[in-house]
Amino acid sequence: MRWSRFAVFVLIVTVLQASLVDIFAVTRLNIKPDLLLILLVFFSIYSDTTEAIITSFTIGFAADIIGPAIGPQMLSFGIFGTLLAYLHRVITIKKFLYKSVAIFITGFLAGVLAYFLTFLKGEPTASNVYAVLFGTCLYSSLAGPFLFLPSAWWMRIKTHRFGRRQA
């Protein structure tokens, strides 16, 4: 893993997520793709297990920095990113459809856990959170696999090397 490239990449994506992604917002619920979720799935699939754990928690922290509170997304992204990395040892996630499904399920589960942790922290939560979460995961799962290629190029990762990992 090229960590300096990773740091720059996460910073750029965090700034984009906090500002420019609003262009792609749809519906009255202001649903937009979650670039950090896409990155989480990308690194969970295309990194070694230890690297996947570090990147998952780091991306979660970046999501918290631009989110309502620090902690919930770091934990939820970290847990589900790690689970996905372990799952990738037994299931190959190579096809476009599988990548989409991985993004959707990881995003939804991580979102529900983050919502629960935010609630535990005593922060106010939106009433229509599940509709927004569903929309965001769906949008991210559709756009995500297309962003894997530029991400792999930037990180100098050869995606064809990563099939099912040996446990």
Binding site: I53, I54, F57, I70, G71, P72, L75, L117
Partner: peptide
């Protein structure tokens, strides 16, 4: 690594 990050996450959550 996972345990350490979980601990850091909980520290942030409870801070």
């Amino acid at each position: 690594v996972f345990v350490w990050f979980i601990l850091i996450g909980f520290i942030f959550l409870l801070a």
